[in-house]
């Protein structure tokens, strides 16, 4: 038991190390990951300016823009990762190794969180400086709590998707692609979701990012505290408690299905 735990912790560290090293080895990637999100979010800030909306709406866009980095990371470097591994022939190596698949995913998630947090902070600082966004942060610890709960819930969702994407070829690619803009829309990355029509809010409530983003914005931009956002905290905890075991179950199920159907080593699907 102890030996197994140590082995899996080593797996977590090894996968984290590869992710951090791989994600930062090429400077042009780093620069792109900072500049590209700034282009779109700048367009949205200018749109709010053209409409004479209050400056905190620019702040909503900047905070949303930083969280885009995490959602993209969850989709492409977490959910779709087993698809990439299958294409490069590494998936079978993972599967024959005497290790937990969840440990591999946890390593990927932690590496992704480290990399993406660095980029997200840079986007936040650059956006705030360029557009002079007014912050009213009263409780930094509450902001950190909201941030970490959001990230854990998001990566738990990524782990669940990873198991689904493991079996698929181009469908996985297209599904990840399809989950970009619609999630930006429904989670209210660029506007407060409570101003949307009720049906849209209903769909939005199925995405953990919606509650996390709403809480983070209210703490950082509107100066609210834990007493105001406790419901967001509770919902995120529920998401985490549901998604993590579900991810583990789905991973085992899909792996067995893949073995039966002989699809775990298929390339060029």
């Amino acid at each position: 038991m102890r030996e197994q735990l140590i082995r899996n912790l080593k797996v977590v560290y090894a996968r984290l190390w590869v992710r951090v090293k791989g994600g930062n080895r090429e400077p042009e990637w780093l620069i792109a990951e900072l500049i590209i999100p700034m282009l779109t979010l700048s367009a949205y800030v200018y749109l709010y300016k053209m409409l004479n909306a209050p400056p905190e709406y620019g702040g909503f866009v900047i905070i949303g823009g930083t969280m885009v980095a995490f959602w993209s990371n969850v989709l492409w470097n977490m959910s779709a990762q087993f698809y990439w591994e299958k294409e490069t022939g590494s998936l079978e190596v993972y599967l024959v190794a005497p290790i937990s698949r969840m440990a591999i995913l946890l390593g990927m998630a932690l590496g992704g969180i480290v990399n993406t947090t660095l980029r997200a902070v840079a986007i936040l600082v650059a956006g705030a400086l360029i557009f002079q966004v007014p912050f009213a942060l009263q409780e930094p610890l509450t902001a950190l709590l909201m941030f970490f709960l959001t990230i854990i819930a998001l990566y738990a969702l990524g782990m669940l998707f990873a198991s689904l994407f493991m079996l698929y070829g181009r469908e996985a690619w297209h599904t990840a692609s399809l989950l970009q803009e619609p999630v930006y829309l429904f989670s209210g990355l660029y506007f407060p979701v409570n101003q949307l029509p009720f049906v849209v809010q209903l769909v939005a409530s199925l995405i953990p990012l919606t509650f996390g983003l709403d809480g983070i914005r209210r703490v950082i931009i509107l100066g609210e505290g834990i007493a105001d956002i406790w419901l967001n905290v509770a919902v995120l905890v529920v998401f985490i408690l549901i998604l993590l075991p579900l991810a583990k179950f789905a991973l085992n199920y899909m792996e067995n299905l893949g073995k039966k159907e002989g699809r775990l080593t298929l390339r060029w699907q």
């Binding site: 709010y48 004479n52 101003q195």
Partner: peptide
């Protein structure tokens, strides 16, 4: 929606 919400608050 950015347009509608921005116009609404303005």
């Amino acid at each position: 929606f950015i347009f509608l919400i921005g116009s609404g608050v303005a």
